[in-house]
Design a protein around this nucleic acid. Sequence first.
DNA 1: ATATTTTTTTAAGCTTACTTAAATTTAAAC
DNA 2: GTTTAAATTTAAGTAAGCTTAAAAAAATAT
Lengths: 220, 220
Amino acid sequence: MITFSKQDFLKNIYKQKEKGNDSTSASYLADVLNVSNAAISDMSKKLSIDGLIHYRPYKGLVLTSQGEKEALKVLRRHRLWEMFLVKTLGMDWSEVHEEAENLEHLSSDQLMDKIDAFLDFPDFDPHGSPIPDRDGNMPDSPVLILLNKAKTGEEYKIARVMDSDNKIIKYLGKAGLVIGARIKIIDKFDFDNSINVLINGKEMILSEKVSKTIYLELLN
Amino acid sequence: MITFSKQDFLKNIYKQKEKGNDSTSASYLADVLNVSNAAISDMSKKLSIDGLIHYRPYKGLVLTSQGEKEALKVLRRHRLWEMFLVKTLGMDWSEVHEEAENLEHLSSDQLMDKIDAFLDFPDFDPHGSPIPDRDGNMPDSPVLILLNKAKTGEEYKIARVMDSDNKIIKYLGKAGLVIGARIKIIDKFDFDNSINVLINGKEMILSEKVSKTIYLELLN
DNA sequence: ATATTTTTTTAAGCTTACTTAAATTTAAAC
DNA sequence: GTTTAAATTTAAGTAAGCTTAAAAAAATAT
Ligand SMILES: [Mn+2]
Ligand SMILES: [Mn+2]
Ligand SMILES: [Mn+2]
Ligand SMILES: [Mn+2]
C-alpha cells in the first residue's frame, strides 16, 4: 500500500486536474497539504521514481496514468465514505470531510464495494462531487459553472460545493444553499464581487469567497 | 492523537490483561506486533515517558490508568467496527478483524458513537468480545472457560472465539462453531489434547489448537 | 535588458519506527 | 553454585516524512 502522504499528494493533483488545471504547482500542493515547499520537492522525486507522477524540476506536476488510477481510488474512498456518513449515519454534510480525509486511506476495495452497494451505487457525494466506480470511471455530469461567473437574470440549480472550511459548508447549509436548490442571480456587484441571489424565495447577498465555492447547472 | 504503533502496543497489553495476564512480556509483544524485541524496548521507554505504561527494565509491561483508557478506546473502535462490518454490511466474521485492525486507529469519537447508536449499543462484537462503552466501561459478562478445559459430559454455549488466523475463524463458522451454539463435551484425548464434541447433533473432533480459541459458558 | 521578486530546489538536520548485532541481565539446568 | 540458555536492552544504522536556511532558476517589473 501507498502511504497516506503519497495518497493525499496524488489526490490533490487529480483534484486540480478535475478543476481544469492540467498541471499542479509545487507551492499549491505545499499549501493544501500543509507542508513546506522543500517537502513537495522531496516527495515529487520519490513519486517520480514510483512512476506515479511526471516530474521535471521547476515544471508543474502531472500524474502518470498509474498515478491517476491511485488518485481515483483515494477519491472513490473519500467520496463513498462521505456519502455513507451523511446518508447512513446522519452526520452533517459539514462534518464528514474531515472524517473521510482519514478513512480514505485504509479501507479495502472489498469494503468500499460493500459500502457502494449498500448506498445503491451513488454517482455523487453529499457535496455534489462525482464518485468514481470500482474501475475508476467517473459518472457523466452536466457542465457546471462557478456561481461567481453566473449571469444576471438566469436561474440555476446548485450542483456542487467545493471542499473548503467546514464553517463555510455549515453556513451554506443553514442558508439553504444545498445541492439541488434553485438559485436565481438578481444582481452582481463589481466593487467587491458579491452577488445578490434569490434562494427559496428569499433574497441574499453572497460574498465573493462564498460564491467561489458553489458550482451551478443552468436550468432549461 | 497517539500513533498507530502506540495504539496497537497498548491494546495488546490490555488484551493480555483481559486474558488474565497482569503484565505482558516484551517478547510476546514483539511476536504479536511483528517487530523485533529491540523495537519493543525502544517503544516501552517512549510510552513510559508518555505516562502510558509502567516500565522497569527487564520487568513485564503494565498499563497506567491513562494507558488503559487509551487501550479501551482502541478496543471500542475495533469491536464496534467489526460489529458494523458484519451486521450492516454483511461481511463474513472471518474477514472483519483485519479491516478493523486498520479502522480502529483513526475514526473519531463522534463517529464511533454514531455507529454504536446505529447498531443499538451492542455489548459484544461478532466474535463474542465485550465492547467498552464510550466511558470505557465493559459490559457484564458471564464467567467463561476455554473449551480446552471443559469437562466431559457437560453442555456449554459458545460465548467467544479469540482473535486468530482468519482461516481458523472461517473453519469455525463452517463447522457451526458460532457464538451461541450449544456444544457438549463427549470425550477428551490425552495423547494429543484433541476433543470429541457434539455440535448441532453432529459429532466432531477438535484439535488442541482449535479448542484453545473457543471460550464457553456453562449451561444451567 | 537588467534588476527584483517569486518559485523551486538543494543541503543539512530532526523524529518516528523500525532493523541487526553485540552486550547484559535474568532464569533454568545440572 | 556454576554453567548454560533465554529474554531483554544497548548500540549503531536506515527510510519516510518532515523542518529551516541557503542557493538557484524562472517569472515579473522597470
Ligand atoms: Mn470531501
Ligand atoms: Mn487524507
Ligand atoms: Mn478482532
Ligand atoms: Mn491496528
